[in-house]
Computed example of a mutant assay.
Amino acid sequence: MDSYFSLLNLAPTFALDADALERAWREASARVHPDRFATASAAEKRVAMQWASRINQAYEVLRKPVKRAAYLCELAGHSVDAENNTRMDTAFLMKQMQWREELEEAAGDATALQALKTTIDAEEQALERCLTELLDSKKDYATASEKVRQLMFITKIQQEIQSLIA
């Protein structure tokens, strides 16, 4: 089975150009669009729908950094296994605890919530730069798997903050 990258004719890298991904998805989607198969047999229509579904699934995984990083690790045989493996370095665990405390204290205070969001956004950007190096340059998938779990936590707390700001 083709990887999501090969399905969209993209290099398997974490540092993926968002515009190139969008173009690749649109081109692949156009090739299997239902309008192209309007006069096709039922079996051909079904296959086209399966391809369209797979192309959309590839796009959804590759467009989100956390999902793309986890996918690259899995392709290399290093499952992130976030449900069963919650091991993280002590420094990051301390940051988690600090952020959780700040989140509790900031509830209802839009300025404090925005400040926390800015801090966590900066941490996310640093983590994504680290993942670019680990995945694209060093090919250190074991370390990258741990960083992906950290990015998963960051994504979750960002969603919580956003729901409180909105």
Results as ranks from 00 to 15, higher is better:
Lys147Met: 08
Lys138Ala: 11
Ile165Met: 15
Met1Asn: 04
Ala166Phe: 07
Leu8Gly: 02
Leu10Trp: 10
Leu134Pro: 07
Gln98His: 03
Met94Phe: 01
Glu105Ala: 10
Arg36Pro: 03
Glu123Lys: 09
Lys139Ser: 10
Arg31Trp: 06
Glu133Ile: 05
Phe14Asp: 10
Thr86Tyr: 01
Arg100Thr: 10
Trp99Asn: 07
Val61Met: 04
Pro34Glu: 02
Ala82Trp: 01
Phe5Asp: 04
Leu103Phe: 14
Tyr59Thr: 04
Leu75Asp: 05
Ser163Glu: 14
Trp25Cys: 14
Gly108Asp: 09
Ser145Tyr: 00
Gln98Thr: 06
Tyr71Pro: 11
Leu62Cys: 14
Leu75Lys: 07
Met49Asp: 15
Met94Lys: 08
Arg23Met: 13
Ala43Ser: 12
Ala115Phe: 09
Glu104Trp: 05
Gly108Asn: 09
Glu44Thr: 10
Val66Gly: 01
Ala58Asp: 10
Glu22Ser: 15
Glu74Pro: 06
Arg149Asn: 06
Leu116Gly: 12
Ala106Cys: 12
Met88Phe: 04
Ala69Gly: 10
Met1Gln: 04
Lys139Cys: 04
Asp109Cys: 07
Pro65Met: 01
Ala106Thr: 10
Gln50Glu: 10
Arg68Trp: 05
Asp35Phe: 08
Asp2Lys: 07
Lys95Ile: 00
Ile165Pro: 13
Val148Trp: 04
Asn85His: 00
Ala52Phe: 03
Ala20Tyr: 10
Tyr4Glu: 08
Ala91Ser: 13
Leu134Ser: 09
Ala58Tyr: 07
Phe92His: 07
Ala43Gly: 02
Ala11Gln: 15
Ala126Phe: 00
Gln125His: 04
Asn56Gly: 15
Phe92Asn: 05
Leu62His: 12
Arg46Asp: 14
Arg46Phe: 05
Ala40Tyr: 05
Phe153Gln: 02
Ala20Asp: 15
Glu22Trp: 13
Met152Phe: 02
Arg129Phe: 07
Ile120Asp: 03
Lys67Leu: 13
Thr143Ala: 07
Ser163Cys: 02
Ala20Trp: 09
Ala20Thr: 14
Asp109Ile: 03
Ala24Glu: 08
Glu101Phe: 14
Glu102Ile: 00
Lys67Val: 01
Asp136Lys: 09
Glu44Asn: 13
Arg87Asn: 06
